[in-house]
Amino acid sequence: MSADFTKTPGSEQINMSAIDLNPPQKSLFNFGFAHPQATDYAAIGLPRMKCSKVSVHYGEKLAVSDASLNIMPNEVLALIGPSGCGKSTLLRCLNRMNDTIPGCRVSGKITLDDEDIYASDTEVVPLRVRVGMVFQKPNPFPKNIYDNIAMAPRLHGLVSSKAEMDAIVENSLRRAGLWHEVKDNLKQSGTSLSGGQQQRLCIARTIAVNPEVILMDEPCSALDPIATAKIEQLIDELRRQYSIVIVTHSMQQAARVSQRTAFFHLGKIIEVGETEQIFVRPREELTERYITGTFG
């Protein structure tokens, strides 16, 4: 495959007047990595994250091969493909979650706002604040709802007063669509919530530190259709502020929530395109066979 999946339609048209070259510095979320608001990537249509020829090995096994992909601001990018195709592996590379797996080697280049996230001087903890992750199974801390949200801002020293923390907790829960359901029981344990509420709590926890990119690894696979619909609605709202990359086995979900979709097969990206194009007239035969259920 020689196709270049890093090109995005319209990305070459840069509206220079929309770029604020000297934006105000917000120390609250500056972790000494690149400043998130240094460039308005959405305004100029540049990728928020960029994967260039990324390959991942688990020991001898090649899990992802030469994957090139852009993650644009304010978009939901869905990664689809059969089990073991490398989509979750690539997702986990985006905030270096694979660092903890023995024998995992990542080659190629992944950048966040043009900075190499695998550079030797990159600190992983601030990176994971900027690129948050929501997992398949809701995993709230065994603490109350308030502390679930407050823990990360507190650890990273993002707040200086109780009032400020209260505001972050309320704001995060509101944006996760959970505030009205839990506002009177913030001292209740996070693990006592329903599965769907727990997952929204995890999303609230992720956005409490104001990330730029949110990674979601099958966030609804353990949820019922109602809870799934609430998460999908939430994803649609969060897109206005963040870039979201979602791995899902549900093609319906990919079609519903994403603007672009990438299809993986045997560690390779077979096709990336606008979601509508992928699901109505895919260019590649393999994609067609996968989405129509005529695979294998």
Partner: peptide, 9 residues
């Protein structure tokens, strides 16, 4: 079936 691709068409 929520058809897709050529099936949808």
């Amino acid at each position: 079936r929520s058809p897709k691709g050529s099936d949808l068409r």
